[in-house]
Design a protein around this nucleic acid. Structure first.
Lengths: 213, 213
DNA sequence: CTGCCGGTCAGGGGCATCCCCGGTTGTGGG
DNA sequence: CCCACAACCGGGGATGCCCCTGACCGGCAG
C-alpha cells in the first residue's frame, strides 16, 4: 500500500531534497507540494493525501495555520511536522494543533522515510532529542521539568518569585496576592537566601534565564 | 569556466535539494559535501574548491568555525553563507569571518545558481531583505543604527545607562566611573525622564530589549 | 559678554529593598 | 503531644532608589 504524500515547505531547495530522496521509494506517492500557507490549504483539500509533511515556520501563520484549517474539513489527513527548530514551544504548538509527529530537519533520508511510514501507520514519531521532553510535557497533567533549584522553594515562594521577576514592587505583589508587604519581604528573603542571590535584580536575571515569567 | 563547488549543511535533505537543483547546470562542478564542521574543514582543504556554500547553524561551531579554519590556510577559497536565519548577528558574524555573501534558504533554485555565479565572480551577494541593513551596518565605519531614543541621551548618560543595565548599584557605578553617587543619581534621573520610564527595573528591560549591554 | 548645555556635586525627603529580630496559625509525622 | 515546616504578620534599621532644588565649572554660539 503506497502512502499518498503532500509536501509543504517555503524553502524550494529543501522541497527538492525531500522529493529527490523519496523518489526512489515506491511506497510513497508524492501527490503535490506547496511553498506557502494558502496554496497548501487549497491543494491539500483537493488532493486529499494520506499524510502531509509540513514545515513549522512559514510566512503567513506557519504550519500551524495549515493544520488547523485542513483538519476542520479533513480530520483523517495526518500531519508530520518537519522543522529546523527543536524549541519546546514549537513542538507543543504543533502537537496541540493535531500533528502526529515532529522531526527536525537534521534527520537523514532513511530515518525520514521510516518516520513517514510509521506516522502513516498511526505511530507518534519524534526525533530522539524531542521524545524525552514530549513525554515529560504530556505525562500526567504536565509535571514540569522539575528544576532542582526551583524545587527547594515552597509553592508560595515560587509564586512570589514569578511576581518579582515580572517587575512588580513588593507593594504591588502584596496587593496581587492579597497578603501583607511584610509577608512578601519574608518570601523574597527566603528565595534570595535559597538561590544564593543578593538582590531582586539578580533574581530577575535568574528568572529570565530560566524562562520563568 | 566551471565553478568548483563544495557544499556544507548538517541537513542531508537540504544538501540533496541543492545538489539536485544544480545538477542540470554544467557551469557547476560539485566536488564534495559535508554534514559537520570537522569533516567540512578537512574535505575543503583536500578538494580546494572555488567556492563553498555553507550553512550558518551547525553543531560544533557552525559555519563560522569552518570559515575561520579554512581561511587560515586557503585564503583564496570563497564562502557563500546559506541560512534559515536572517538575524543581523548571524549575518554580521559571517561577513566578519570572511564570507563573501549571505542568502537565506527561502531563495529559489535559479536565484541560488545566480548568487553562486556572482559570488564566484567576486560580487558580494545578499538576499534582498538583508542588503539594506548590511549596507547600513558597514557604511562608513559602523555609524550605529542610530536609535533616536538613544540619541537624545548625552554620552555620559548612555555610559551610566549601560552600567545600570548590567545590574550595578548606584554606589558601584559611581566607583566604576570615578564619580560621586549623587552624579550617578542625576544621570539616571535624566535617563528615566527622557525615556519615559520610572524605575531601574524598567530601564534594565528597555536596555535588554535593545541588546545594550 | 551672556546664555545655554553637559558634567559634576550636595542636601533632604519619600519610598523600596533587604536584613535582623520576633510572633501566630495550621498541618503532618514521629 | 511535640516538633518541624509552610505561610502569615509585625518592628526597626541600614541601605538603595528616585525626585526635587540648587549650585559650580568649562566650552561654545550668538
Amino acid at each position: 500500500m503506497t502512502i499518498r504524500l503532500f509536501l509543504v515547505d517555503d524553502h524550494e531547495l529543501f522541497l527538492t531534497g525531500v522529493r529527490t530522496e523519496l523518489a526512489g521509494d515506491d511506497s510513497f506517492d508524492i501527490v503535490g507540494s506547496a511553498t506557502d500557507v494558502d496554496d497548501a490549504i487549497g491543494a491539500i483539500r483537493k488532493s486529499e493525501p494520506d499524510l502531509v509533511l509540513i514545515d513549522v515556520h512559514m510566512p503567513g501563520g506557519g504550519g500551524l495555520a495549515v493544520i488547523q484549517n485542513v483538519a476542520e474539513t479533513h480530520p483523517d489527513i495526518r500531519f508530520l511536522a518537519l522543522s529546523v527548530s527543536d524549541a519546546p514551544e514549537d513542538v507543543i504548538a504543533m502537537i496541540r494543533a493535531g500533528a502526529r509527529g515532529y522531526v527536525t530537519k537534521s534527520i537523514g533520508p532513511d530515518e525520514l522515510a521510516d518516520a513517514i511510514r510509521r506516522t502513516a501507520d498511526g505511530d507518534a514519531v519524534f526525533s530522539p532529542r524531542l521524545a524525552g521532553f514530549v513525554l515529560d510535557a504530556f505525562a500526567g497533567a504536565m509535571p514540569r521539568p522539575s528544576d532542582p533549584e526551583l524545587d527547594q522553594l515552597t509553592p508560595r515562594e515560587q509564586e512570589v518569585l514569578r511576581q518579582i521577576a515580572r517587575g512588580y514592587t513588593y507593594k504591588q505583589v502584596a496587593r496581587r496576592l492579597s497578603i501583607s508587604i511584610k509577608t512578601v519581604e519574608t518570601h523574597v528573603s527566603a528565595v534570595l537566601r535559597k538561590l544564593q542571590l543578593s538582590s531582586r535584580h539578580e533574581l530577575a536575571r535568574w528568572a529570565s534565564d530560566r524562562r520563568i515569567v
